[in-house]
Design a protein around this nucleic acid. Sequence first.
DNA 1: GTTGCGCAGATTTTT
DNA 2: TCTGCGCAAC
Length: 739
Amino acid sequence: MQLDHLNESQQKAVLSTEGPLMILAGAGSGKTRTLVTKIQYIIEEKGVSPYHLLAVTFSNKAAKEMRERISSQSDIDLGALQITTFHSFCARMLRSEATYLGLSRNFTIYDTTESKSVIKNILGKRGINLKEVSPAQVQYYIDDVKNNGHYVGAKDDDLLDEIDKDDEFYQYFLDYEAELHRNNAVDFGGLITGVLNLFDNFPEVLARYQKRYRYLLVDEYQDTNRCQFKLVTMIAHVNKNICVVGDEDQSIYSWRGADIRNILDFENVYPNANLIKLEQNYRSSKNIIDAATCVISKNLQRKGKDMWTDNEVGDSISIVECKDDRVEAEFVAQNIQKLIKEHDVDGDEIAVFYRTNAQSRMLEDALRTYKIAYRVVAGMKFYERKEIKDLLSYLKVVVNDKDSLALSRVINTPVRGIGTRTLRKIEDEALKNDLSLWEMIEKVVLSPDEYKYLKLTAKVKAGISNFVSLVQEVKELQKAEQLPSNCYEKLLMESGYYENLVAENSYESKARLENLDELLSAIKQFEETVEKPTLLDFLETITLDTSTSEEQVREVSMMTIHGAKGLEYSYVFVCGVEENVFPSFQSTENGDEAIEEERRLFYVAMTRAMKKLYILFAQSRMLWGSIKFNGPSRFLDEIPEEYYKWLNVGGRKNRLPEKSFEDFSQAGSSIEEVGVSYASKPKLKRKYEVGSTVKHKLYGVGKVLECEGLGQDEKIVILFPEGTRKKFLVKFAPLEVVK
DNA sequence: GTTGCGCAGATTTTT
DNA sequence: TCTGCGCAAC
């Protein structure tokens, strides 16, 4: 087998297949290339069946990339080879072994929002004011417990000493777990602890998996939590062929339980472990690597690698001091335009990074005014919309009728006269009879006479009955293996949801209808990619894999730095590098460890760039409603002068509010004053003006009272002769100007 | 029981 | 700036 394309340490990493191995792979060190070759080597050279190999990663992105590379480089059967994320791996295992844990295999996976709702309900039922105990805190506690590998009834539990079981929070945890179990639901953490539970208590199951997975590969090892580590160790216990790959300097998920000890302690757990470091960087210019190395060396919590590169020195880093966030955005847009127009750079070689999603808006605006094609790699905003959640809840009920959370969400959406009081009444009754909410309402519909004492009105009964039969019918469709999209459409149309929105005929309702249409496309798209599409799989995919299908078009990418991990771009703009933004405000209050994590994040940002790195900060910035003057980030101090040029854009140094600015500006070896020309925003003309008379197709003639927004967002308020006012989104409303 | 409004609160990152 | 919640009026 050819290994020429690998350097010496990479080759060693490939060839060392037996026994525990930790590969510390610095940014841009050819990690994926090495891993893919290693998998190939194990299968093709050692003759191991793909069936005996398991590769787990932390993110879908990484799993996908590995799978794609393997299929393009070899003819390994991807069907037999397991390359998945921890969460999907566990979900799959839990489904097939569900009965061991008293779950049924159609369990629902709750995302963070859903588990928070459950927590709220629990606190509510205990009569606790949500202001006294914040649900977020409880959620954090529960996550923490699970991330460390604790579950209800754990026997061999090294956390037992640390957990105070009399703690009120622990009681909430128990309540929460019980509620999830009743709902036949599992949260993210529960997917992992569930498997741990399975392995702990059913050795025969564990043995089966140990026998199967002879070679174990863990990618993005720095992001694994304690529980995931336990899990992997258990599977690898027999063969000990465990290879973990990670970079402690890129560990940026400790807030979600990632435990840097997993890296720092690996050799304690496996005393005979091999350690290989991949330290040659193939990605970035020498300037960038050296600067990033200086920054990260300030961290104490690391094993220490010495990154180096043969690449050329390259351009200086540009540190750009901007007057405010507006100028920052303007600078980014102008320079991107310059790159594209004057230097013939493709949009997809450029990326804009920021610390928080909230920062993207102003940047987007700027790119739009400069007519630069861009794409925001955002989280799952789409699936957070009300209407989408509503319909998904319908689907969830169809798949898993024990999911009372989803059920109570839709039982009265659209309104069927089943208000909170009625719902509470039925819930209590269900509790009394030890039935799920669904079983209860089914019974009420089936034998109303039995439940006369509930004093449900005819209207309520009719509402429930309609709802129940609709869900039952769709359940039948599902059983008959009808396409998910058919189920969806039936629910949407026959629940009255669609009709209601159409009747509402407002600018909002129209946007919602569009979104629901988009959901339909998403389902259909899913149906095309899978062999045997089921609702269950669709729901699982969208909760576990938020990465959108990205077509590589020539667009500039915009994303948070967390989203940028694992990616590379020739030109990178890192925005908002100010104190309280980056490092984030809360990290500055949480001690050195938190700052170190922010520093790692900054390191990740820097090392994404191949040719040219721009680091920007603003003297003043609009932050949650008011203007804040944060100084430049402390991380800028950590970059030696020789690696950067300092630019000053649109700011007057003598008027700087914070002393630190002046100190800082003088530190730069060469300060260059540059201007930004403000793009005169092509003033989108409004279609309507206050005072003009317009005609609405449905409501007739009226007068425009107010206007707001421009272009796509233009909204107007119309006063109709009868005295009613209505607000419309211009792009949807059937309007015409009369006068 | 429903709807609408106003207010307070929160906003880091995401499987 | 945006969202969710509680409360008051219909």
